[in-house]
């Protein structure tokens, strides 16, 4: 045989520390505990410390916007990669949540925090009910319907001159203090992020993943997939509505631009960059994309060109996403091995 003792292949194996920390033995040494906690720690502390490190008001606002987009990206990633419903409706969730909260606050006089909470809940229910008709369908229908709703709502508000028409609803209360506003949204992002990570590992998450893989088999197991999908849509749209409601209270204004397609598209781009299906990835994608898009403002209209180039480069050269790549490097070592 001519085959190669001289040939080599690159082998990937789990780090010993990963294998050990997967059991209860993690409690046995500080090193293993640190290995387990470190990645989570970096994200949590990084997000909490960021507003303190950046005294500039403008960039503090950017951090809030990053969190808003991160919530949307989280909801997109959950729907698309855990349930298999590709939703282009980020803008719809933001708009519904935003307008609901604006109306509750300015018309009914709810306090800011209360109106955000109520708007999240009612917004989730409203979005779920409106999306219910296309849930039994498979394929591209869900994406089309979710894309249509924000366009429809924006034009309806403009044409019928309801909800403030083109001027929008002004004079909405902000959250009690600037620091509260900053940390409220960061805290909620962390809560939703780790909450969702828990959720996808529960039995419910398992069923949802099964619906994504093979909905007929799930149906054959005696489960009603439409109700499971509706539940997933409720969770995702509630997160989106929460993001919208918070946004409205940050800007103290709700207008047609809350239905802008930016809220649908940017989270998808962030998910591609961050690594789809990881839930943390989209958040990291937003942490990169939103500030980059702010930095590029100096270039004026060329901004979109650079922005598109960055996205293109990611899709072509690292389409697995940062998080998938990072996880692999963190948990596995590579070495050459003779065949």
């Amino acid at each position: 045989m001519t085959t190669g003792t001289h040939q080599r292949r690159k082998e990937r194996i789990d780090r010993g520390i990963k294998v050990r920390t997967e059991g209860i033995y993690a409690l046995m040494s500080w090193r293993e505990l640190v290995y387990l906690i470190m990645p989570r720690f970096v994200i949590i502390v990084g997000l909490l410390v960021a507003p303190l490190m950046i005294p500039d008001m403008y960039w503090q606002r950017v951090i809030s916007i990053v969190c808003i987009y991160a919530l949307l990206a989280l909801s997109f990633d959950f729907l698309a990669h855990q349930v298999g419903l590709v939703s282009l409706g980020g803008a719809f969730f933001v708009g519904v949540g935003g307008y609901l909260s604006a109306v509750l606050n300015s018309v009914f006089g709810f306090a800011a925090l209360l109106s955000i909470a109520v708007a999240t809940l009612i917004g989730g229910i409203v979005c779920t009910l409106l999306l219910l008709p296309c849930l039994p369908l498979r394929g591209v229908y869900f994406a089309i319907v979710t894309l249509m709703y924000p366009l429809f709502m924006a034009r309806a508000i403009e044409a019928l001159d309801i909800l403030g028409g083109t001027d929008g609803i002004m004079g909405i209360d902000s959250l009690p203090s600037a620091w509260m506003e900053q940390y409220f949204i960061i805290g909620m992002l962390l809560l939703f992020l780790f909450g969702m990570r828990r959720l996808v590992n529960t039995d419910l998450g398992l069923v949802l993943r099964a619906v994504k893989d093979n909905d007929q088999a799930v149906r054959a197991s005696g489960m009603n997939i439409t109700s499971y999908k509706a539940l997933a849509v409720f969770i995702a749209s509630a997160i989106g509505c929460f993001a919208g409601a918070s946004l409205v209270h940050i800007y103290m204004w709700a207008g047609i631009s809350t239905f802008a397609l930016d809220f649908s598209v940017l989270p998808i781009a962030a998910t591609v960059i961050g690594g789809s299906g990881t839930l943390v990835g989209p958040v990291i994608g937003c942490l990169i994309l939103v500030p980059v898009s702010e930095l590029l403002r100096d270039f004026g209209t060329l901004r979109i060109v650079f922005y598109s180039l960055i996205l293109l480069a990611f899709v072509v050269f690292r389409s697995e996403g940062l998080m998938v790549y990072g996880q692999r490097k963190y948990h596995q070592i590579e070495r050459w091995k003779k065949i």
Partner: peptide, 13 residues
Amino acid sequence: EMAGGERITLTGS
């Protein structure tokens, strides 16, 4: 490779 999945090694002639 693009999706970050399994690495497939192929040798021989």
